[in-house]
């Protein structure tokens, strides 16, 4: 069966600034994003994620390279991204003083929905994202999370074939975050909506993305399904230990782990083969060191581990 590509990106390069201070924000990026795919862009601050999606939306002109949407070069049809894609940027200043219902309703009208259709779509999306109770309040008077959620509603209303979302769930509480993930997957499943989203959130990346591109300093350093990425990195598991007090240094298991662990205060993280980890944990929980052990966990590698192995810095990642 033929694959319909929502986006085909080739050699995309974009610099910010000029002369000595020029920064290569995107460096020869190639991407294929299929229709009906939830595609994620993961990376630390300053990796060029926003620059990438702003080019996908036609908000920035590439210095080099091409972007085609459903086979059409966007240079030949500059209005194509605006017609095909709903966009959620990071700034919401344009909507700040509008009541939620007005913001969503007028956005639907600007996407060409009739008055009646805009009303219906507005009611549906507010209900879906749990915003009905605050429909008449201006965005600026909402909590940070609700405000972000209202902006997500404006991006989703009008059912575009493509959604480009720059950190849609930043600042949301877990319930709202799950509502957004469900809304995205519902659209993907029901109408084949393509979703491109930027995320810092490991759980988001692992649970909602079909594929993820890892960006580092303007380059795509890896791109695959979360499962494949994790498998490609290593077969190791991660053993996390938290000590109540100083562990007994003369215990041979403790001494072994101390040599391998990355420590953060009394928290130790050890990456090792599954059998060895199981074995070590068994000896710890039955031995003398157990008295000093406060908490422990044994986990398969997460995207965070992938990210660290590929050279990313974990301080920028969220885990909940």
């Amino acid at each position: 069966m033929g694959v319909v590509l929502s986006y085909a990106v080739r050699g995309l390069t974009r610099r910010h600034g000029a002369g000595e201070h020029a920064v290569l924000a995107n460096d020869r990026i190639d991407l294929d994003i299929s229709q009906g795919e939830v595609f994620g862009v993961l990376g630390p601050n300053g990796a060029g994620k926003t620059t990438l999606v702003r080019q996908l939306m036609g908000l920035l002109r590439p210095d080099a390279g091409t972007i085609t949407m459903f086979g059409q070069d966007v240079r030949d049809a500059p209005d194509l991204p605006a017609r095909l894609a709903g966009y959620l940027g990071q700034a919401d200043h344009a909507l700040a003083e509008l009541p939620v219902a007005t913001a969503v309703g007028t956005t639907a009208r600007m996407r060409g929905l009739s008055r009646a259709a805009a009303r219906t779509a507005r009611a549906a999306i507010l209900e879906e994202l749990g915003l009905t109770a605050v429909a008449n309040r201006p965005l600026a008077r909402l909590s940070g999370g609700q405000r972000r959620l209202a902006c997500v509603a404006t991006a989703l209303v009008g059912d575009r074939p493509v959604l480009i979302l720059d950190e849609p769930t930043t600042g949301l509480d877990p319930v709202a975050r799950r509502a957004v993930w469900a809304a995205l997957q519902r659209r993907r499943d029901a109408t084949g909506t393509t979703v491109v989203l930027i995320t810092h959130n490991v759980l988001e990346a692992e649970s909602v993305l079909d594929r993820v591109a890892v960006l580092e300093a303007g380059r795509v350093i890896a791109c695959d399904t979360p499962g494949q990425l994790k498998a490609s990195v290593s077969g190791d598991v991660r053993l996390d230990l938290a000590w109540r007090s100083e562990p007994p240094a003369d215990d041979p298991t403790v001494a072994l782990l101390a040599g391998l662990a990355t420590t953060n205060g009394r928290r130790w993280t050890v990456r090792m083969a599954p059998a060895a980890a199981r074995d070590a944990l068994g000896r710890l929980t039955t031995g003398a060191a157990f008295a000093a052990l406060d908490d422990f966990s044994l986990a398969t590698p997460s995207l965070e581990d992938v990210y660290l192995t590929l050279g990313g810095a974990s301080r920028d990642l969220e885990r909940t």
Partner: peptide, 25 residues
């Protein structure tokens, strides 16, 4: 390294990726 669509890209609606226990979400 540049990016090539993997085999799963051939499916228009790939399932949620995973292997191992599914996260709660």
């Amino acid at each position: 390294m540049t990016v090539v669509p993997d085999a799963r890209g051939a499916s228009p609606v790939p399932s949620t990726a995973g292997g191992g226990p599914l996260p709660r979400a």
